[in-house]
């Protein structure tokens, strides 16, 4: 019997070939997206066999140096130290993927971009002069080239698994940029905006979450960021202006409430940022 005919040969071949090295790194963030990896539970063993998990402090104290084939980056850049660290990490990463709203768009902490960080420091710390902090929270793509971006607060663990599977298969990961509405309709949800009159961001927010919030009767708050966005400009989706007008004229939100809809977890993304600033001028 040839060796290749023996039971179990394929699995051994799979584990014996040079497994891609994975590194998971954290910047300014809450760890929630990294937890999504650990929450893969049923697939963790297979993931551990398919990849050499070389650096993932949230999961293991065995931390191996780079270079890495796949690097997952959680968190945004908020300190001078992190701004330098991401440059060094990029050199160690063959493929760099951002995971979550912070790394992809600056996150909720990008609300500081509209505020005075120095006053926050003085309010919180007795000796603010020791705090090294940038005045802004910026996405990884503002500092280095990013190969793929996973949106969400947190990311969808199934989407992450799918991207890793695609990379292992040698194909370009498919990441949908369509509206949450499409997923809502596929799932058989009743539209919360039309039937309940709540200001849902689903029509301008990209799918990928499985339409979790509308499935629970709640309005989407845009944690997966704007639809499309590979190109931005007049006449291209997302049409945040039309949705904002509907919130104001149809659902009777006052301008500051419209500002808050768009200035949330992904408030710093250009299309959402422009919309919130346009309505801020009306307050």
């Amino acid at each position: 019997m040839a060796e290749s005919d023996q039971p179990g040969h394929r699995e051994e071949a799979h584990t014996n070939r040079a497994r891609p090295r994975l590194g998971v790194f954290r910047f300014a963030s809450c760890d929630g997206c990294q937890l999504s990896i650990l929450n893969l539970e049923d697939d963790l063993l297979a993931l551990g066999q398919a990849l050499d998990i070389a650096y993932f402090p949230e999961a293991s104290s065995g931390m191996k140096p780079g270079p890495y084939d796949i690097v997952l980056v959680e968190g945004s850049i908020t300190t001078p130290e992190d701004a330098a660290r991401i440059l060094a990490l990029r050199e160690q990463a063959a493929t760099l993927i951002t995971i979550g709203a912070c790394a992809t768009a600056g996150g909720i902490q990008a609300l500081r971009n509209w505020a005075d960080v120095e006053s926050f420091k003085r309010a919180v710390y007795p000796s603010p002069q020791y705090i090294q902090s940038l005045g802004t929270s910026t996405p990884i793509s503002a500092h280095v080239q990013v190969d793929f971006e996973l949106w969400g607060c947190p990311i969808d663990k199934g989407q992450l698994l799918r991207v890793i599977t695609d990379l292992l298969a040698g194909v370009r990961p498919r990441l949908f940029a369509d509206s949450v509405c499409i997923e809502c309709k596929r799932r058989g949800n009743v539209c919360v905006m039309v039937a309940s009159g709540v200001p849902c961001l689903g029509p301008v927010t990209r799918t990928g979450c499985g339409a979790i919030c509308p499935s629970m009767g709640r309005d989407c708050y845009g944690c997966f960021g704007p639809t499309e966005g590979a190109r931005t400009g007049p006449g291209l989706p997302p049409n945040t202006a039309s949705l904002a007008n509907r919130f104001h004229q149809g659902l009777r939100l006052i301008p500051i409430e419209v500002v808050r809809r768009f200035r949330g977890i992904n408030g710093a993304v250009e299309s959402f940022k422009q919309e919130s600033e346009a309505w801020e001028r009306k307050t």
């Binding site: 369509d178 509206s179 509405c181 499409i182 029509p203 989706p237 049409n239 202006a241 039309s242 949705l243």
Partner: peptide
């Protein structure tokens, strides 16, 4: 109409 349309695809889904 393009100024109002969200390109959200709800019309085609229903």
């Amino acid at each position: 109409v393009a100024g109002r349309c969200l390109a959200c695809a709800n019309c085609t889904m229903v």
